[in-house]
Amino acid sequence: MEEARRITPPLDRERDMPILNVNGTSHDVVAEPETPLLWVLREQIGLTGTKYGCGIAACGACTVHIGGIPTRSCQVQLQDIAEGEEIVTIEGLSPDRSHPVQQAWVELDVPQCGYCQSGQIMAAVALLRDIPEPTDEDIRAAMSNLCRCGTYNRIRDGIKRAAELS
C-alpha cells in the first residue's frame, strides 16, 4: 500500500512569508511555519474541497498533489514547501469537472456522502498518471484512502472507467 510521501528536499526555513503556488495561482500566506498545508488551504486560502479526516496521514481525505505527487497535506508543514512548488487541489483538477476521473465518478455514481472523495479522486488521478491502464490489483495496491461509506468497489470501477475515457 502506498504511504503518503513527503516532499524532498524540503524547505527553506528562513522564509517567514512563503508564497504558495496553488492551482496555478500565487497566494501570500500568513501562518505559523508549522501550520499543516491542509489548514492553510482550508482556512487561509479558502479551498475547502481538501478535507480534514484524521490529521495523521491515515485516511487520505486531505490528499493533494505537490509537484505531481499525491501527498497527505495534513502532514506537510508550510515550511516544508519549496518556493514555487506546484500544489494542485481538487478544485484545480479541471475548471468544469471534465477530468476523466471526475466524469467517471459522475457516470458511475461513485460517491455516497462524498466527504472522502476529493482525496480519493486526487489519489486516483495520480495512479492513472503512473499506470494509465491499471489492473484491479494495481488499483487495490495503490488506493489506500479510507471511505467509511464503503464505496471502494465503485472507486475501483470508476478508475477503470476513467482509464477508458482518458
Binding site: 475547502t48 481538487i90 479541471s94 471526475q102
Partner: peptide, 21 residues
C-alpha cells in the same frame, strides 16, 4: 437513475458543515 447530488462531490465545491464559513 443517477443521484441528483453527485457532481459537486467531484470538484470540491460541495459545502459540508465543516466547510461552512
Amino acid at each position: 437513475l443517477l443521484r441528483l447530488d453527485t457532481a459537486d462531490k467531484t470538484d470540491g465545491s460541495r459545502v459540508y458543515s465543516i466547510d461552512y464559513t
